[in-house]
Computed example of a mutant assay.
Amino acid sequence: MFWHFGGADPAAFEGLDPEVLATRGIPAKLPMNHSPLYAPLQDPTIELGVRALLGAARAWLADGE
Rank of each mutant, 00 (worst) to 15 (best):
M1E: 07
T45S: 15
R51Q: 15
A12H: 14
A11R: 15
G64A: 09
R58Y: 07
A56K: 01
K29T: 13
A57P: 06
Y38F: 15
L41K: 15
E65D: 09
P18I: 03
R51I: 00
D17C: 09
G55F: 00
M1D: 06
G7Q: 06
L61P: 03
G64D: 12
L61Y: 09
A28H: 06
A39G: 14
F2S: 00
G6A: 01
I26C: 12
A56Y: 02
K29Y: 13
L53N: 00
I46D: 03
A52C: 11
L37F: 12
L48A: 03
A57M: 13
P44K: 05
L48T: 04
D17V: 07
A57D: 07
Y38N: 12
A12W: 15
A12P: 04
L21W: 10
K29R: 15
D17N: 15
G55N: 07
P27I: 03
A56L: 04
H4G: 00
H34D: 14
D9V: 12
E19F: 06
D9C: 11
S35W: 11
W60M: 03
A12N: 14
T45N: 11
G25V: 03
D63S: 11
V50P: 12
L48H: 13
L54S: 08
D63E: 12
E14L: 13
F5H: 02
R24C: 04
A62W: 05
P44W: 02
P10V: 03
M1A: 01
F13A: 09
P18S: 07
L16I: 08
G25Y: 10
A52N: 06
V20E: 13
E47K: 05
Q42P: 07
P10C: 06
A22R: 13
Q42C: 02
R24F: 04
G55Q: 03
A22G: 13
A57K: 07
P10T: 05
G6K: 01
G55H: 02
L48C: 04
P10G: 06
L41S: 14
E65H: 05
G15K: 10
Y38Q: 08
L41V: 11
G49C: 02
V20S: 08
F13S: 09
A39Q: 13
G6E: 14
F5V: 01
H34L: 05
Q42G: 10
A59G: 07
E19C: 04
G15M: 12
G7M: 01
A22T: 05
P36V: 03
A8W: 14
T23L: 10
D43G: 02
G7L: 01
I26Y: 11
A57I: 04
F13K: 08
P40A: 00
A62I: 02
A11T: 08
E19N: 13
P36Y: 04
F13M: 12
W3V: 00
D43R: 09
M32V: 09
E14G: 11
E14T: 08
W60L: 03
H4P: 00
S35V: 06
L48S: 06
A62G: 05
M1I: 01
G64H: 09
G15W: 13
R58W: 09
A11Y: 12
V20M: 05
A52S: 13
T45G: 04
T23I: 05
P10W: 07
G15A: 11
